[in-house]
Amino acid sequence: MISAPGLPHPTVTVVIPVKDDARQLRRCLRALALQTRRADEILIVDNGSSDASARVAGEAGATVVQCVTPGISAASAQGYDLAHGDIVLRLDADCLPSTTWVAVMVEAFQRNPHVAAFTGGARFVDGPRLLRAPLAAVYLGAYAAAMFPALGHLPLFGSNMGFRRTAWRSIRSRVHRRDTELHDDLDLSYHLGEWYRIRLLPRAAVGMSMRPFADRRAFARRVANGFRTVVVHWPQDFPPVRWAKLILRRTIGPRTFRVVAR
């Protein structure tokens, strides 16, 4: 059985997709080992690494699964499918969660039975020290501001988010898991946010690398993929249509997550 909100001991799975990022993954797994509330399961989804990523994960006691379909969308979705935890948390390999990250996420889900997903913020842990905080605020703020009109709600941030496994199971057939040109967290935002509530959880702190800004071409490609992720959901989620659907569904009332069979 899955623990209902309010029950004292929901189980937690952390999913981390990885490809050729052994050094950063080792740091991330060390941070997870120092959690005040440790995850019950850590799933590393190896998306065709040629380095020691799988070995590093195994040495840290994580469960390693291979994803032969290329792309972070496929790797992430496979991890979510295989997760056993009542709550599924997601990090990237270059993330450094604070020691209370898992505990804060679990407490938030227990206190908010009508919320299906929480998304946290981030701080940069490398790059010019004086620019770390303002750049992180601009980066995440711009992402949220740009995506809110398209979604009608807050977007999920893939480097720091969590959701109920029951919610994932209800929408997993709709995500674009084989499209390598989409942002998987934004795609998931479309499908989870259509039916469930997504909320911000600032106290769930995670550090991340400034690598997305290091390569102009790579950053431009990320922006282009963001626009493509939006457009691929049209016309069924064209903003006026989506907003109308959300208003209608929210008048019915929020869904509460109760005990259901595995």
Rank of each mutant, 00 (worst) to 15 (best):
P10I: 11
A205C: 11
Q110F: 11
H176S: 05
E181C: 01
Y143W: 07
R217N: 11
K19T: 14
R164S: 00
L131Q: 12
P254M: 01
W243M: 06
A214Y: 12
P149G: 02
F124C: 08
L140M: 04
A142M: 03
V18G: 00
R165N: 05
A77T: 15
A122V: 12
P240Q: 06
V232S: 05
Q66H: 12
L154F: 11
H183I: 08
Q78E: 13
F219M: 12
C28Y: 04
L248T: 06
G152V: 08
A150S: 11
V104C: 13
A54Q: 03
G152K: 03
G85S: 07
Q35C: 06
G226Y: 06
E194V: 06
A146E: 02
D237Q: 09
L82V: 07
V230G: 00
G152D: 10
R132Q: 15
V45M: 02
F157Y: 15
V45I: 15
H114R: 14
V12S: 06
L29P: 08
A57L: 08
F157C: 13
A137V: 05
L201S: 09
L34S: 10
I198S: 04
V68G: 00
L156D: 02
F118T: 12
N112C: 06
A218D: 12
D185P: 01
R37Q: 14
T229S: 14
S98P: 02
H191L: 10
A75V: 08
A75N: 11
I198M: 10
F227M: 13
A142V: 08
R55M: 08
L91P: 10
V12Q: 04
L248E: 11
